[in-house]
Design a protein around this nucleic acid. Sequence first.
RNA 1: GAACCGGUAGCUCAGCUGGUAGAGCAACUGGCUUUUAACCAGUUGGUCGUGGGUUCGAGCCCCACCCGGUUCACCA
Length: 522
Amino acid sequence: MDSSSNQPKESSQSPSQEGSSQQELRAIRIDKVSQLREHGVNPYPTSFDVTHHTQAIHEAGDSMIAEPVEEGQRVRIAGRVMTRRIMGKAAFFNLQDATGVLQVYIRRDDLPEGQFNEVFKKLTDIGDIVGIEGFVFRTKMGELTVHALHFEMLSKAVRTIPIAKEVEQEDGQKVVYDAFSDKELRYRQRYVDLIVNPDVREVFRKRTQMVQVMREFMNQREYLEVETPILQPVYGGASARPFVTHHNTLNMDLYLRIANELYLKRLIVGGFDGVYEFSKDFRNEGLSRFHNPEFTQVELYVAYKDYNWMMEFTEEMIEAVAIALHGSPKVQTKAGVIDFTRPWTRIPMLSAIAEAVGQDVSTMDDAALAALAKSKGVSVEADDSRATVLDELFGELIEPGLIQPTFITDYPVEMSPLAKRHPDNPALVERFEAICNGKEIANAFSELNDPLDQRERFEEQVRQRAAGNEEAMQIDEDFLRALEYGMPPTAGLGVGIDRLAMIMTDSESIRDVLFFPQMRPE
RNA sequence: GAACCGGUAGCUCAGCUGGUAGAGCAACUGGCUUUUAACCAGUUGGUCGUGGGUUCGAGCCCCACCCGGUUCACCA
C-alpha cells in the first residue's frame, strides 16, 4: 500500500488512517455487539414488521390517541435513534425513518426484565437502528410520542454518527447546532450526510420527482423511452473530449458517450415518431461548480416537428416541472424569483448581441467584429472564427444576465454541425438554447436530415480537428448511411438534468445535486 | 492548469505577539419514571493534513506536497 508497511499490521478490527479516539469509540461499539449476543439479542436480525411511518403518525395526529391512551392502536415503527434523553427508569429518544422523526417514550417497567437497563440503556446508542411497538400519546409538553411496549435492536451501528442538535426557539425559528457541514466529508460519505441532514434528502427527492414529471410528460405524448449505447466506437453528438476505454475480446478502443444524439436519430430513421432517453454522458474535461465528468441529460427527438414546436414543448414541460415541485411556476432562488410561466422570451442570438453592443453585427466584416469584441473586453484569438467571436460576445455580455428563462435562437452554422440551416439565412441554423439563471439549461434544433449537407458539415469538423480543435466531431459513417435512407423532418432537444435540478433546488454546486460527485481519492 | 481561502478530538469550533493544546456535543462511570440542545456529578479522548526547515522552543513563521472550497480558463 504505502511505504509505512514495516509498521506493525493494523488489526482487522480497527481500520487504519483513523485517530485513536475514533478507534476507541468504534472498539466500544464492537464490544457492545458482543454484549448484545451474550444477552441473547441478535444485533442484526432479518426483518421487522413496520405498520406505520413516522410521517403518517404525525399526519394522523390526535386521531390516533385513544382514551385511555394505553388502549390506542398499536403501531410498529422502525428507524435510527437520533437522540437519547435518559431519566433513570424511563427515557425518550427520537426515531428517524425514511419519512421523518418521531419521539418515542420507553419505560423500564413496560419491558421484559432487564431489557431496559441492559439492552436499551447500556447497549443502544445514537445511530443504531431499532424497531418499537406501542401506542400514540401526547406528552405534558404536547409532543406527539409513541409509548413503546416492545423494543428490538435491528442493526447495531459501530461507528458514531455526527450529531446535530436542533432547537426550536420561541419565535418558532429552528437553530441547528453542530450541523455536519464539512463539504468534503459530506460528499465522500454521502450516506452520513443523508442521515443527519434532512435538507439533503429533500434535494434528491426533488431531483427524482423532476425526472418523473418529465418522463410522465413525454410518456403521455407517447414518446418511447429507449436505451442506446454508452460504449461507442465513434463518439459524437456534441463537442467535447471523451473518455476512452478498451474492450479486451474485441481488442478495440471504445468511447464513453458524450451524447446519445446520433443513436436517437437513427431510431427516428427506423420509424419511431418520438424517442427519448435519460442519459448519463461523460466528458473528459475540468471539474467545477457546474461540471462533473459524468452528468445527466434527457434527449428527445420528435418526427415532423421543428424547433419552433420544440420551444413550446420545452417551456410547457419545464413549467410543469416547476409547478410539480413548487406548486407554482415561480421558483424562489438566491438569485431572486425565477418565473417559468410560459411563453418565455425569445430573442435571436444576433439581435441579442446587437442590443447589447448597440450595433448591428450581422453586416459587420470579421475584422470589425473582432475589434468590437476587443473594445467590449471580450478576449478573442487571432484565428477565432466569426462564429466563435459571436459566441464569445454572447457568453460574456448577455448570458450571465439572463436570469429568467429565455430562448436564444438562430445560431451560426459553424457552431452547429448537426442542425438544419435557417431557410431565410444559410449562415444560421434553426437552433435554440434555453438560458436560465445565467446558464444554458436546454439546447435544441431542427435536425439536419440532408445527408449530403451532413457529410460536408462533418468534413468541416475534420478540418477543424486537423487545425487543433480537440473537441471537433468525427465522421460517423454509419450515421450518414442512416440519414441516406431518409430521416423525416425532426426536432431534437437536450435538457441538462443536473443544471435544472440546481435551479429547482436552489443549489449552488452540481455536487449538491449528485449523490456521489467525482472526488480525488482520499 | 492558475490565484485566493481553508484543514486542530468522532462532529462543530476556539487557540492572542512562537512558550509543551481547549470548549460544547458525542463517548465512558454514577444519579434521575413525561424529557426535548434534558438535567446533575465525575472521567476519557489529539501524528494540530503530510514532509522538511528556522528557532532554546512551532498549531502559530518559511518551503514543498496532499485534500477540499471558491474564482478564472474550458465546457453542459
